[in-house]
Amino acid sequence: MSDTVDDQPGDAVPASQKSTWTHFIKSIASVSGDLSSLTAPPFILSPSPSQNFPGRTPEDRAKRVLKWFISTLKGQYTSRNETMGSEKKPLNPVLGELFYGHWPDKNGRGLTTLVVEQVSHHPPITAYYIANASRGLTLQGHSAQKTSFSGGNIIVKQVGHATLTVSLPNEKKEEYLITLPRLRIEGLWYGSPYIELAETSYIQSSSGWLSTIKYQGKGYFSGKSHSFKADFTPPIGAGSGSQASSFEGQWKSTSKDTRTGAVFTDVTSPKEEVTVRQVEEQGEWESRALWYKVAKGIREGDFETAAREKSRIENEQRQRRRDEVAAGTSWQLKHFVHQGDDPLYERLGKLFKAVPPIEDVYIYQNNGPTFDDSA
């Protein structure tokens, strides 16, 4: 994939859908304020569980966490560009929608499991939990989106955070607070949208090591798309043996240590995808079973069937909400419990003056499915 974006209009939009696409873009441009009703959340955390955690020192572990995080960005934000020609508007997830997956135990890395639940529809909020028991790793988080339109682009402010917990050989635990970058969806007027990351995100370790990641896209006259620079700084008051460092490059391809020139991340080779049960084996609330007919219609160009099935699912959701109101009940989450504040976020966020200073959290209840550990 080149560093520039194809400027030919409509390359990724089917001819029969170009008028619909134009109408969609015009509708976005006419809205001032939140666009949550028009766009679906583009974020789902999809880790590449290949790093050899936990590492020997706090510095080494914090650096490995940064490396892992950068290595996940391509899969999260440019996979649709490469497989479908451009960024596509995701289907609006329904309240209670589920996604289960795992990465089998290979080469002694242990089984890694994934549980995702749509915990809110308006606004759309996705909660997730990833664990590798043999490595002593757990990742828990949630993401929501606040979207707006500015300068011909869709601006997506990601709300939420993730916390990574690493169990150490001495039975202590190390914790990491991971905040989320802002997104900018460009190329709309050409019918070939793509995602750029913007502004700054952070990874704060309980050991004090901090990664400050600044994102930048291709400018009018210079620069490369999907670029970043990460400053890796030691705890306040650390001795002379703790040295700051920085890494920069493109999160969709390669990056280097700015001091030594050594390769830091390289995501150009194919990555192992998460293993998911066949559609016929899934429950009715699991994503691929729930949206099967819609996805099939889109892939086959049968947009009439896709639209009809999509409307059916959405109408059923509206009716469930009306029934709940009439009965004075509310939807019960399956795997997560909402908590109004997150003490870990507040404690680690103070170390780099996180904004906002307080966030809520969804706590996983350790009641996910049993995964097949075979390769």
Rank of each mutant, 00 (worst) to 15 (best):
V13Y: 06
P14T: 14
S16W: 03
S16F: 08
Q17C: 04
F24R: 09
A29F: 00
L35H: 13
T39Y: 13
I44E: 02
P47S: 03
P49C: 01
K63Q: 08
R64Q: 12
L73Y: 10
R80W: 07
E87Q: 13
K88H: 12
P90T: 04
L91Y: 05
L91I: 07
E97F: 01
E97K: 00
Y100V: 05
P104D: 04
G110M: 01
L111I: 14
L114D: 11
H121T: 15
H122E: 15
T126M: 08
Y128D: 12
R135G: 09
Q140V: 04
Q140G: 12
G141P: 09
S148P: 04
S148Q: 06
V156D: 05
A162I: 05
E171L: 14
E174A: 02
E174I: 00
E175M: 13
I178A: 01
P181T: 09
R182F: 10
L188K: 13
W189E: 04
Y194S: 04
E196H: 10
E196I: 12
S201E: 13
Q204P: 03
S211P: 01
S222L: 11
D231Q: 05
P234D: 02
P235D: 11
A238Q: 07
G241R: 02
S242K: 02
Q243K: 15
A244T: 08
G249W: 06
S255R: 00
V267M: 05
E281H: 08
E286S: 00
G301C: 10
E304C: 06
E304I: 15
A306E: 01
A307T: 11
V337R: 15
Q339R: 14
D341T: 10
R347S: 05
K353D: 12
P357I: 06
I358V: 03
I363E: 08
F371M: 10
S374P: 05
A375W: 00
A375S: 03
